[in-house]
Deep mutational scan, measured.
Amino acid sequence: MATDAALRRLLRLHRTEIAVAVDSAFPLLHALADHDVVPEDKFQETLHLKEKEGCPQAFHALLSWLLTQDSTAILDFWRVLFKDYNLERYGRLQPILDSFPKDVDLSQPRKGRKPPAVPKALVPPPRLPTKRKASEEARAAAPAALTPRGTASPGSQLKAKPPKKPESSAEQQRLPLGNGIQTMSASVQRAVAMSSGDVPGARGAVEGILIQQVFESGGSKKCIQVGGEFYTPSKFEDSGSGKNKARSSSGPKPLVRAKGAQGAAPGGGEARLGQQGSVPAPLALPSDPQLHQKNEDECAVCRDGGELICCDGCPRAFHLACLSPPLREIPSGTWRCSSCLQATVQEVQPRAEEPRPQEPPVETPLPPGLRSAGEEVRGPPGEPLAGMDTTLVYKHLPAPPSAAPLPGLDSSALHPLLCVGPEGQQNLAPGARCGVCGDGTDVLRCTHCAAAFHWRCHFPAGTSRPGTGLRCRSCSGDVTPAPVEGVLAPSPARLAPGPAKDDTASHEPALH
């Protein structure tokens, strides 16, 4: 009773807030009518008042009428009001819900409408889902798969039609296919003929059939049928067999079959498995989609049935006599038709004709302190090069084509190399640097090759510096006499390219 009084008091307290929050009759008014909170006449009256005075006034009048009803109607109103779709449509209802007392429970059932309790003993237990329907569909599909699609060729003596089998029958139906081979029951999904010589313990000319048996419980189990008994694959494991010639990621696949039913060829011909030897223990289905393919039931050349050999690369099948050149017997292992072999060759040939990528240039590290003349020119003028003790990398590039010797140069053309002071002394051009340390401070000019250098860098042994005729380390061993002091540049003949010694390969005349 306390809860009923509290709900009535809360409705009177929030009546105006609810009326202002509800700006549309749908969905709240319609939901109240659906849950029998508002009768039909009051529903029509509220809609009429909404058209006349507006939605807030109409709902305020409806809530005032609701306060005169019993506690069950008020409880049902609060339940409908706080439904998710009403809270989404009328956003101003959320503060009312947040301020609702926590001790007021809106989930209690309506009085007088409590459903009768059902004894637990009368409640049926839930049924577990079964796979009976899938099993029945598999039974119905198996006879259809064994139905012949056409008439065999005159040369083929193997013609068999499976008798119709009602689904209610649980007995196995067997077809006489000759040579002791028996087909599987209607619940078998796949059958492959297997030679009895590969099964340990088999006697006589009995041949087993590799099947997948579907049981009534819905589970499946792969086994071997020899005669009327089934054997699990673990009985046929043979770890010492060295003649297993397995197909790549293979499961067994029928390579020879008669049109209309699988079996042995007439005249004692023995149908073979995809792999010879003992049956392997793992009978998992292969991951290669080509091995799941269903080959055609007629020859791809003459479009006739009979004894066919199936290609492992495509769905086509052929007569042995229709092949070019014809085959006398079934080859062992994987067999592919000429079209598949030709496609494989065409895929391999473009790969062989692809040009080989060019090898990157060989990189040879230079000892610290040495650099090529090109690196000396590329440096920024007026700045010493940083990191001189790091190992430089010199790339061996292809030799350029031989060019004509340089033409003779006048001494005026070499004027930018040297600057003559007032006393006739050779001065260095701006930006000249030593080729060893890279520093341009207090550098000297070689009178023979006009290269800038430090005496301490080229002659670290402490050799005394002569007063005139300074030469760098590369030119100090040259027998050519030094030019007379005061000459602007060496003779043009000295600039012609010539053979250089091994220790002077990195010091070429550089223009500054």
Rank of each mutant, 00 (worst) to 15 (best):
D4T: 00
A5F: 06
A5V: 14
A6L: 15
L7H: 09
R8C: 02
R9W: 05
R9Y: 08
L10F: 07
L10N: 01
R12L: 04
H14R: 00
H14G: 03
T16L: 01
T16H: 00
E17V: 02
I18F: 02
I18E: 06
V20S: 00
A25D: 03
F26R: 01
P27Y: 00
L28F: 00
L28H: 00
A31L: 05
L32N: 00
L32I: 00
L32R: 01
D34N: 03
D36E: 14
V38D: 00
V38S: 00
P39S: 04
E40W: 01
K42R: 00
F43T: 01
Q44T: 03
Q44D: 09
Q44N: 10
Q44G: 02
Q44A: 06
K50I: 06
E51W: 00
K52I: 07
E53P: 00
E53Q: 09
E53F: 05
E53A: 11
E53M: 05
A58R: 03
A58H: 00
A58N: 00
F59Y: 01
F59W: 03
W65T: 10
W65L: 03
W65P: 01
L67A: 02
L67Y: 03
Q69Y: 04
Q69K: 02
T72G: 02
A73W: 00
A73L: 05
I74Q: 02
L75T: 15
D76A: 04
F77T: 02
F77Q: 00
F77A: 03
R79I: 03
F82N: 00
K83A: 05
D84F: 01
Y85Q: 00
N86P: 02
N86I: 02
Y90D: 02
Y90E: 00
L93S: 01
L93Q: 01
L93C: 01
I96D: 01
D98Y: 02
S99M: 11
F100D: 01
K102F: 14
K102G: 05
K102A: 00
D103F: 07
D105G: 05
L106T: 09
S107W: 15
S107Q: 02
Q108P: 06
K111N: 14
K111R: 07
K111F: 06
G112V: 08
K114E: 15
K114R: 07
P115I: 04
P116K: 07
P116V: 08
A117N: 07
V118Y: 14
K120R: 13
L122F: 14
P124K: 05
R127L: 05
R127W: 09
L128T: 15
P129Q: 06
T130K: 05
K131P: 02
R132Q: 03
A134G: 01
E136K: 01
E136Y: 14
E137V: 08
R139H: 06
A140N: 06
P143Y: 14
A144P: 15
A145W: 15
L146M: 04
T147W: 15
P148E: 15
R149T: 05
R149I: 02
T151R: 07
T151I: 14
A152R: 09
S153Y: 06
S153A: 08
P154E: 04
S156V: 12
L158V: 07
L158M: 09
A160K: 00
A160Y: 11
K165A: 01
P166G: 15
E167F: 15
E167K: 06
S168G: 07
S168K: 11
A170Q: 04
E171N: 11
L175T: 09
P176C: 15
P176S: 14
G178R: 15
I181M: 09
I181E: 02
Q182E: 15
T183A: 06
T183E: 04
S185H: 00
S187A: 10
S187N: 06
Q189R: 07
Q189T: 06
A191R: 13
A191D: 09
A193I: 03
M194Q: 08
S195W: 01
D198N: 11
D198V: 09
V199I: 14
V199A: 06
A202W: 04
A202K: 02
R203K: 03
G204T: 10
G204H: 14
A205F: 03
V206E: 03
E207S: 04
I209R: 09
Q212D: 01
F215W: 08
F215S: 04
E216Q: 09
K221A: 00
K221S: 04
K222N: 06
K222F: 00
K222V: 02
I224S: 05
I224H: 04
Q225N: 07
G228P: 08
G228C: 06
E229R: 02
F236N: 15
D238Q: 09
S239P: 11
K243F: 07
K243E: 04
N244G: 02
A246Q: 01
S249G: 13
S250P: 01
S250V: 11
P252W: 05
K259I: 05
K259F: 11
G260L: 14
A261D: 06
Q262K: 10
A264C: 07
A265L: 13
A265M: 15
P266G: 08
G267T: 15
G268T: 06
G269A: 14
E270Y: 14
E270C: 11
A271G: 06
L273H: 03
L273K: 04
